[in-house]
Amino acid sequence: MSEFRTATTRRGKLELQKRAPKLIESGKKTLVLHGTKSSAVLNSVLTQIYHLKKQSAVKYSRKNDNINPFEAGGETSLEFFSQKTDCSLFLYGSHSKKRPNNLVIGRTYDHHVYDLIEVGIENFRGMESFVYDKKLAPKEGSKPFMAFIGEGFESIIGLKHLKEVLLDLFRGEVVENLNLAGVDHAYVCTALSSTKVFFTHCALRLKKSGTVVPRMELVEVGPSMDMVIRRHRPPNESVRKEAMRTSKDKPKKKEKNVKKDPLQGKIGNVYIPDQKIGEMALPNKSKGVKRERREARQNHGNDEHASKKKKGDS
């Protein structure tokens, strides 16, 4: 038996290529799962966040009894799932007497747990409890606006951490070009106290203002909730340093059909597809161009009358 396993199909190879480390990463996938016990509130929190991120999320619906993200050895199967689904963000819901409606938001680096933050959910209002014009409903996968309000997000460690995690979780795909017509929703996070954050999801209504910039109006579409920070584990300093590394230069796309010549400078090859001149229709079909007439003229000289007769016979 060989020590190495190679993808046997083209498709498998492609799939693995997608998962390979890249110089510039475009977005993280999210894994949504829960522990042995879960409450109704938590269930809807998980499903609704999953719906918000549906394009880049995986939801597990079974109970998981051996996941304890904060305890040593409790992250084993979490890391396994993260590897299996290629997710680097996870939401783990659990409900106990000590920590009711507990939501652990965590990130992984290289499929190992990077950091964790635990929040309790309070005052939850689901999407279904908001009444608004359905035309405003945000489209799936559009890039959201993020708004953070409050001094605490800068000064308090827990809140600062939560801000970073929430930004990572909800910011969506990292894009270079943005369609301004597709801007349609925003997340608003407000620090209420040193441990409490009010989180809500709003649709944007763009109104005319007379200038290029439209006037923005927020319409709450839900879900909205209060997050109470419980435990949090910041990343290991050395891992953080490693994870924050970015490439300075972008990967160059191979330039095709262009050569550099020291004398002539830049030389490009231009390939023109077959012109199909033979099949092309002539712009004007005048009488003289017609083939029979030309042939007749050649055969009979000036005797046009005869050629006409011949044509009539055939």
């Binding site: 390979a20 990463e25 993280k28 680097s88 680096y109 930004l167 301004l180």
Partner: peptide
């Protein structure tokens, strides 16, 4: 619709996987 070129993000977030 109108397309806009976004500047690179200034808030640094950790990578998902190591650099190639």
């Amino acid at each position: 619709g109108p397309l806009v070129k976004l500047p690179p993000p200034t808030t640094k977030l950790p990578r998902e996987k190591h650099m190639p």
